[in-house]
């Protein structure tokens, strides 16, 4: 029980890493990126390819993956999303859906449907090992990285001019533009940051769980769940959302068997969605 809760909280850190990019993009662009999960898995595969092919260690591979994903994020933003942003909700949603289909099947074509795991030393190491409690190093590292990134991002958003311009764009694009903010650049910056964080999340996911090309759907739903529970666009809400989902999943698995733990997480998510359609901790102005 205690084990479940502790592991759930740590897993929640990983989940919030997955969700934070989505939350950022939604908060700023009001765009739900249905390709988010697939983009993350793409990041995982890039890390895998770089570390396998060039023999770099995981940290360097992750950095390369982050750079590549930032470029991809910029391209996606510039050539796809920016063009449909002003056409309403449906085209934007469907474009990212098309991208999701494209990416998932492209990865399937290139990497085949085999399960993969980023081999690393952390997965098998336990930081704490007692009869009642054991904490895996990879979970702990995920959690710590998540907290660092969320705090760092929050500081950037609050304290720097860059963060202010992004928040201004988020609040009122037109007013921000009149004040001299390049909103298209702010959007692109948000997407690039999102993709960078997502690439890190991808590496963490890939070194904790097995993954395959169609894992994207599962992680999209997790990301969405995290963001919905935490409130779209709220950074610290994302962390709490991740923890709620992680604990719910593991407690569900504890009570009903590990096969149905995702089912429990989904049901918790649906119930929360039905009761509080704008999230448990929607701090910023409610936007649909």
């Amino acid at each position: 029980m205690l084990q479940c809760i502790i592991t759930g909280i740590l897993l929640g850190g990983l989940y919030s890493m997955i969700g934070i990019g989505m939350s950022l993009v939604f908060g700023i662009m009001k765009l739900t990126n249905l390709a988010h999960g697939d983009l993350m898995i793409l990041g995982t595969y890039i890390t895998m390819v770089v570390s396998n092919a060039l023999g770099f260690n995981l940290v360097i591979s992750t950095i390369i993956s982050v750079i590549v994903m930032c470029v991809i994020g910029f391209i996606v933003q510039q050539f796809l999303v920016n063009r449909v942003m002003d056409k309403g909700e449906a085209p934007a949603l469907l474009v990212t859906f098309g991208l999701s289909i494209f990416l998932a099947n492209l990865m399937l074509k290139i990497f085949s449907a085999d399960n993969q795991l980023l081999t690393n030393k952390m997965a098998s190491v336990n930081v704490i090992t007692t009869p009642v409690l054991s904490v895996s190093a990879s979970y702990l590292i995920s959690f710590i990285v998540a907290v660092i990134i969320i705090v760092g991002l929050a500081l950037v958003m609050q304290k720097t001019n860059f963060g202010r311009s992004i928040r201004a764009t988020s609040d009122d694009p037109m007013a921000a533009e009149l004040m001299g903010v390049n909103t298209k650049m702010a959007f692109a910056a948000a997407m690039v940051i999102c993709m960078g964080i997502t690439a890190v999340a991808g590496t963490l996911v890939g070194s904790t769980f097995t993954f395959y090309p169609s894992s994207g759907t599962q992680y999209l739903i997790i990301a969405f769940g995290v963001v919905v529970i935490g409130g779209m666009g709220s950074l610290f809400g994302t962390l709490i959302g991740g923890i709620v989902l992680g604990v719910a999943q593991l407690l569900g698995g504890f009570a009903f068997g590990s096969g149905v733990q995702m089912l429990i997480a989904y049901i918790v998510l649906l119930v929360i969605l039905a009761l509080r359609p704008n999230g448990l901790f929607a701090t910023s102005a409610v936007r649909k």
Binding site: L80, R83, V84, P91, L94, V95, F97, G98, L99, S100, I101, F102, L103, A104, N105, L106, K109
Partner: peptide, 15 residues
């Protein structure tokens, strides 16, 4: 290849 092509076509049509 089928879904890859479909994805591309869908994106192009929306754009």
């Amino acid at each position: 290849m089928s879904n890859i092509v479909l994805g591309i076509i869908a994106i192009v049509v929306i754009l």
